[in-house]
Design a protein around this nucleic acid. Structure first.
Lengths: 332, 332
DNA sequence: TTGTACGCGTTATCAA
DNA sequence: TTGATAACGCGTACAA
C-alpha cells in the first residue's frame, strides 16, 4: 500500500487538506509550512494517486490511442506526432492495438471509456460509420485517422494518391495494372480501390476484376498476392499495392521467381515509409505526411475536449514519389 | 458526466449496493431483481468506472509497457507477445515510448506509478542498473527486457549472438571486421560490443577502434556509419551492425556508392526482423525470438504481481541465420 | 492560515 | 434478500 496525504499529514501534525494545498501550490497556506510539507513528501517518497485525483476531478488528462496494427510502421510516426502535441499540453498518452479485429477494437474503446479517458484517437478503425453510434462518444470525444467520412477525422487524400499512381503507370505505357487491395474493406482501403477503378475507366481501360487481389498490410500479404497474379493467363505489367509493406512483399516474391522489378513488372507502394526509400529497388510510392497527421489529430482532439464546436474533417494532400520500382513495360 | 450506479439505483428504487451486487453477479440477491437491474443498466448505457473500482479495490488489472522506440519494429512483436498473455489473464495493456531518453523514461515510469498500475515491462531501458533504486519498484513490480544483469529480466543471448556473427565472418576469411554500435551504451549494446572484441581477440585479430563507429537503431544511423568507415585508409571487408535497421541503412548507403553487397563488403544485422528476410540482398542476421520474449516477460510479471518469489533472470538463445549479405572477401 | 466536512463511484461489511 | 455505512485518496467549500 502506497503512502497517501494522510500519512504525510500525521507525520507533519497538520490536516490532510493542508497537505493537499501545499503539494498543489494552492494559495491559502503559509510559505513555511508549504516548504516543510513539500520536503517531507519528497522524503517519504510520496507520489499522488492519479486514480483518486481523477475520481474527484472528473477528468483524467490522458488520451488513448487505438491503432490498427503495431506491426505496421505507418502508425509509429503518427504516434510520435500525437505524443509530441499531447505532452506539450500536459496530457499523457496510452497506446493499444486491436489488430484489425472488430471485437478487439470495441473492447479497447470500452476499456478506454472505463478509465474515463479525456479522449481517444483511433487509427485504421474497422468499424467505420458505426462509430457515430458508439454510445459514449459524447462523454469521450474521438478523432478518427483515415476515416474521411467521419466529421472529426484527419486523413490523407487516398483518392488523389491512388489516381496519381494509376496515371503515372498509364503514362509509362502500362495497360494491365493490377491492384493488391486490403482484405478488410474499411474506408480508406475502399477509397484506393474505387479511385483505382475510376482512373482506369477514365483512361479507357476496362477494369478486370481478376487483376484485383486481396492482401493484408504486411509483407506476407504481398507474397500471396503475387502467386495469384502470376497464375493469370495474361500477367499484369504493373502492380499497385495497398501499402509499402505489401509492395516489399510483392517485390521480394517477384525477385525470388527471377522476375525483375521494374524491367519485367513495375510495382508501386503507398504510405512513404522509410523502408520505401531504403529498399532495393527503392519504391515508387505515395508519401503520406504521417507525423503531421498525428499532430493534426491530436490538436483536433484537444479542441474537442475543450468543447470547441466548429470542427471539420481534415484531408491532407498526399504526393507521388517516383523512384526505381517503376518503368515502362517491356515491349511485347 | 457519465451515469453511475446511483442513477440506476434511483430508477430501480433500490439501494446502490443492490445495484452493485446485481452488476457483479454477487450472491446475496434475488434472481428477479438481478435480471431487472442488469437490463436497466444496459438500457441506460451504464459503464462501470475503472477509476472508482481501482480506488476501492487498490488494484488496477493493468500493466504498462515502456518501450524504447516505437519506430523500431523489433518491439512490435514483443508487444504482441505481452498482449496475448495479458489478455488471456484478464489484464489490460497500455504502451508508451520514451525514445531512448532517460528523462522521458523516468517520467513514464512515474506516470505508470501514479496510475498505480499492477506492474510494468520495460524494453530497452537506458537506466540499466539504476533500476533497482527506482523507489516504487516494490509496489509496482517491473520486468526488464534485454537487461540481463537485472534479476527480473528476459533477454536474448547477445553475447552468443555477437560471437556467432564474428566467427561466421572470420570463417569466411574476413579480418577487417567493423562494428556499428549503438550510440547509447546501454547494457545489451555493450554486450554485443564486448563480445565482438573478445571474439576477434580470441581469433588472433587485433581490435582496431577505428573500425568501431556509432549508429543508432534506425536506417539513418547506418548511413552515417558508412561515411565514416569508407573514409578509413584500409576499408573493412565486413560490417557487423547493431541491428537489422542499421544493416539496411548500411547496405543502402553502400549500394548507392556502387559498392556491392556481399561481393565487395559483407554486412550482418541483428534481431531477425521480417525486413531482414524481405530485403534485397536478404540479411544474414541473428534471429531473436521476439514474440517468445514478450510472452515470457508477461508471464514473469504476472508471477511477480501474484507475489511469486523464486524468479530468476531468463536468457533465451539466439541463432545465426546466414542469408545473402555475407560472402568471402574479395581477393586482394 | 488552518481544520472540518463532504463528495467523486465503487465495493465490502454489517445490520435489518 | 436488501439497505445503511464506511472506506479507498484526493480536492474543495466552508467554518474556525
Amino acid at each position: 500500500m502506497s503512502i497517501s496525504i494522510k500519512d504525510i499529514a500525521k507525520r507533519a501534525n497538520v490536516s490532510p487538506s493542508t497537505v493537499s494545498r501545499a503539494l498543489n501550490n494552492r494559495p491559502r497556506i503559509s510559505d513555511e509550512t508549504k516548504k516543510q510539507i513539500q520536503a517531507l513528501a519528497k522524503e517519504m517518497g510520496y507520489v499522488p494517486s492519479a486514480i483518486a485525483r481523477n475520481l474527484v476531478g472528473q477528468r483524467s488528462a490522458t488520451i488513448g490511442i487505438a491503432i490498427a496494427d503495431f506491426l505496421n510502421p505507418f502508425y509509429s510516426d503518427i504516434i510520435a506526432g500525437i505524443e509530441d502535441i499531447a505532452i506539450a499540453n500536459n496530457y499523457y498518452v496510452f497506446v493499444s492495438s486491436f489488430y484489425r479485429d472488430k471485437q478487439r477494437e470495441l473492447a479497447l474503446l470500452n476499456t478506454f471509456y472505463e478509465r474515463r479517458l479525456a479522449g481517444i484517437i483511433v487509427a485504421g478503425s474497422v468499424m467505420d460509420d458505426e462509430y457515430l453510434s458508439f454510445p459514449h462518444i459524447d462523454a469521450m470525444p474521438a478523432v478518427l485517422i483515415n476515416c474521411p467520412s467521419h466529421p472529426f477525422s484527419v486523413s490523407a487524400d487516398k483518392v488523389l494518391g491512388a489516381r496519381l499512381v494509376v496515371e503515372h503507370l498509364i503514362e509509362l505505357g502500362h495497360r494491365r495494372i493490377a491492384h493488391v487491395r486490403h482484405a478488410h474493406n474499411y474506408e480508406t482501403a475502399q477509397l484506393r480501390l474505387t479511385s483505382y477503378k475510376d482512373t482506369l475507366s477514365q483512361h479507357g481501360i476496362t477494369v478486370d476484376d481478376r487483376y484485383i487481389v486481396a492482401g493484408d498490410e504486411r509483407f506476407t500479404g504481398g507474397v500471396r498476392a503475387v502467386d495469384q497474379l502470376l497464375a493469370l493467363p495474361e500477367q499484369p505489367t504493373a502492380i499497385f499495392c495497398f501499402n509499402d509493406m505489401t509492395a516489399v512483399g510483392v517485390i521480394n516474391a517477384l525477385l525470388k521467381k527471377g522476375i525483375d522489378v521494374p524491367q519485367d513488372i513495375s510495382v508501386v507502394g503507398f504510405d512513404g515509409l522509410d523502408i520505401a526509400s531504403f529498399y532495393h529497388p527503392a519504391l515508387t510510392t505515395v508519401q503520406q505526411p504521417t507525423y503531421q497527421i498525428g499532430c493534426e489529430s491530436a490538436k483536433m482532439l484537444l479542441g474537442l475536449i475543450e468543447g470547441k464546436k466548429n470542427i471539420k474533417a481534415r484531408i491532407i494532400e498526399s504526393q507521388l514519389i517516383v523512384r526505381e520500382s517503376t518503368a515502362p513495360p517491356r515491349a511485347e
